[in-house]
Amino acid sequence: MNDHLANPPAPAAPSALRPVRWEARCAVAGLALAGAAWLVRAVWEIRLATAGQPASGPPDQGGGRHRPPTSLEDGYHVVSSLSQGAVVLCALLFLSWLWRVRDNARALSGEQARHSWIWMYLGWVLPLANLWIPRGLVVDIHRRSAPGRPLPSSVNWWWGLWLIGLFSGVGLMSADDTDELIARAYTDGWMLLAADAAIVGAAVAAVLVVRAVTAAQRERMAGTVPE
């Protein structure tokens, strides 16, 4: 008659917990797309460097004058636009995943997030803050999702490569327009390729980050709420 005391019912799952697998898959797909797009961009820069600058000089002739682009240069304009679009889509999907795991981490730990919600946006674009806030968001989510577990090394790889690709001067935050990047491909192609390699590497590492954090949350949730 004491069975109900020996085997008490499992506590109810926090209502705030929500499945995260779909958001994780979308984030991984977005990262793969952005990485592939940037890889194509790097291949095009190699093609430009191999072809060499035309005798008429760079596309931007100075003084507001531009010569007619070659077919390779036209192609690079298309590839550049598509790669930027892929990055925007990737950012939206990654943020959607980050919001979900952030909410789940708060429900699993019963603690408030270290950073308020506004930093989910400002942390990526505000100068100086964007040097550490996004990584801090992921670190805090992992700590509250898997207390006691060491931080996956992929987090540090992702963030280090991201910063290199972001602030290298020829990467994501480059102030140069496409014609100026084409001119660089002719003269200093190795700098563009180094930034491209960092961005592609950051995308690969970010996939591992998404998988690690998602797996940690799903393991915690498996004993609380079914996916």
Rank of each mutant, 00 (worst) to 15 (best):
D196E: 12
W124V: 03
E219I: 13
W44D: 13
M1K: 09
I133F: 10
G171W: 08
R135P: 03
T178K: 10
R114Q: 08
G223T: 01
L151S: 00
R143D: 08
V209P: 00
C90H: 08
L89C: 10
G110H: 07
G223M: 10
W162H: 07
Y76R: 07
A6N: 13
D177V: 09
A27W: 11
A194N: 07
A27P: 01
A55G: 04
R21V: 11
P68T: 01
H4Q: 15
A194L: 12
W22K: 15
R114D: 06
T224K: 11
T70D: 05
A6I: 12
Q53R: 06
L208Q: 08
N130K: 00
R65S: 07
R21F: 13
S174I: 03
G57Q: 06
R67P: 03
W158C: 06
L72P: 12
P19G: 07
G201M: 00
S174M: 02
G62V: 08
A222N: 04
I141T: 05
V79K: 10
P8T: 06
L31K: 00
I46E: 12
L161A: 06
W157D: 12
P147I: 03
V204S: 15
N7A: 13
W38F: 14
T187H: 12
V88R: 14
R100H: 09
D140W: 07
L31V: 03
W22M: 15
Y76W: 14
L89P: 09
L161Q: 03
A185P: 02
L172V: 06
Y186H: 01
A183F: 09
Y76G: 02
H142G: 05
W132G: 00
V204N: 12
A146L: 03
D103N: 13
S145P: 06
G52R: 00
P147C: 02
L193M: 02
W117C: 14
N104D: 06
V139C: 11
N156W: 14
W159T: 02
D188N: 09
R143S: 04
A107N: 03
G57A: 02
V213F: 09
L128H: 13
P11R: 12
H66Y: 15
G201V: 01
P54G: 04
A16Y: 12
D176P: 08
S174V: 05
G63N: 08
A216N: 01
L95T: 05
A24H: 00
V78W: 15
W132Y: 11
R65T: 06
A185H: 04
I182L: 09
G57R: 10
G223L: 11
E111S: 11
